[in-house]
Amino acid sequence: MKKIFYILFSLFFLGEVSCNSSSSGETKKTKAEVGEGKAKIRIAYPKIKNINLSFNYTGTIEPSKEVRISPEIMGKIKKITVKEGDSVKKGELLILFDTRLSGLQREQALAAVESARVQVENLERELKRLEPLLASGAISQGEFDKVKAGYDSAVAGLNQAKAAVNLSGYQIKVSRIIAPFDGIVARKMVNEGEVVAPGALGPYGMLTLMDIKEVIVKAGVGEKEIGFIKKGMKATVEVDAYPDEKFEGIVDNISPSADPMNKNFPVEIRIPNPEFKLKTGMFARVKILVESRENALVIPESAIIEEKSGKIVFVVDSGEVAKKINVKTGIEEEGFVEITEGEITPQSRIITEGNFGLKEGARVLVIE
């Protein structure tokens, strides 16, 4: 019995020794793989590329021209030649008023002109006849002045009649509402047969005409950025309706005064719109190109560390240790930063991950 117990005890002891030896070897192997005392990092190489300084804003698409057409006279609408969405040319007839009353008034005014002219001519002849009589004393000054007053009144009546002719002619002229420019009928607020008067339709008028061959995006630019924006700068516009397209435009106008509500400066970007893809009221994202650099040396933005003394970048030197480089930066775009000063070359191994809290001279392990 003692012999069996001794054998079992020996086997248990040998098993324990074997297990402990195996576990100890596994731990040392793992430490050796990760590299004891080394900081894990990732690197990237600088690139030579074109880089742009751009400012991003939002705005709303507006027409380059817009007019709300209201009547200049009170009248009945005889004919409307367009409907909403129609394209029209400058000078094209849009609305025609009934001109029968204006025509009759013009005829009446012309008759009054003729009557007043005859009266003026008669009194003028009478005055010429009385002038020598007045000189010879055959008639008194009062008698002459009475005829002269009649003549002056007749001349005034003639002028009034002529004004009535002009007024009726103008009423006939403005009864034809024509397009002031090429555009699209965006809104129609009246129908044939309605009687309308100036101001009766409020701010909408009878028709709204828009020119959207070019459109405008108005963006609000803050005080810190307005000094960079110049008229003529290039801009790109994106809208949700066409997610894969960018529409090119230019800065067309910069307001000299800020909006009193939000303190931003209104800036207008003009965009050609020959296919009428951009519609008024669309929400737009605007990028204004302020500055462009060709063949700039750039590195990932994550490589830049801000210190009290300035900006630094860590690189991996030939001894696989971290080296701190002081740098100055320029334009930032889409995750890349331009390096304007510092000992950085396209061959430099820039630390982009694991660089925060890293000490100069620390041993590093580059991981993929």
Results as ranks from 00 to 15, higher is better:
F5G: 15
Y6L: 12
L8I: 15
S10Y: 11
F13W: 09
L14I: 14
G15E: 11
S22K: 12
G25R: 12
E26N: 11
K28G: 07
E33T: 03
K40P: 00
K40E: 00
I41R: 03
I43R: 01
A44Y: 02
A44L: 02
A44N: 06
K47I: 01
I48T: 13
K49S: 09
I51C: 04
Y57T: 02
P63I: 10
E66N: 11
E66Y: 01
E66G: 05
P71G: 05
I73Q: 12
I73K: 09
M74G: 09
I77Q: 10
K78P: 01
K79H: 15
I80P: 09
I80N: 12
I80D: 13
K90F: 03
E92T: 15
L93C: 12
G103K: 13
L104K: 03
E107K: 14
Q108F: 01
A112M: 10
S115N: 04
V120T: 05
L127S: 10
K128V: 07
E131A: 12
P132E: 10
L133R: 10
L134Q: 15
A138N: 10
I139L: 15
V147T: 07
G150P: 00
A154K: 08
A154M: 05
V155S: 08
A161T: 13
A161F: 12
A161E: 11
V165D: 08
V165W: 06
L167K: 07
G169Q: 00
Q171I: 05
K173P: 01
K173L: 00
P180T: 06
D182Y: 07
V185K: 11
R187T: 08
V195C: 09
V196F: 04
A200T: 09
A200E: 05
I212F: 11
I216N: 05
A219I: 06
G220E: 03
K230R: 13
K230G: 07
K234A: 10
A235R: 12
V237F: 00
E238W: 03
E238S: 10
F247V: 07
E248F: 06
V251K: 12
V251H: 10
N253Q: 09
I254C: 10
P256V: 11
M261K: 05
M261F: 01
P266S: 06
V267R: 08
R270W: 00
N273R: 08
K277P: 03
K279C: 10
T280A: 12
T280N: 14
G281S: 05
M282R: 05
A284Y: 08
K287Y: 02
L289F: 14
V290A: 15
V290D: 13
S292M: 07
N295A: 03
L297E: 00
I304P: 13
E306T: 11
S309Q: 07
G310V: 02
K311E: 09
V313S: 05
V313N: 06
F314L: 07
V316F: 02
V321K: 14
A322M: 05
G330N: 03
G330Y: 14
G335V: 05
F336W: 02
E341L: 00
E341M: 00
G342K: 04
T345D: 14
S348P: 13
R349Y: 04
I351T: 01
N355C: 03
G357F: 07
G357Y: 11
G361W: 06
V364K: 01
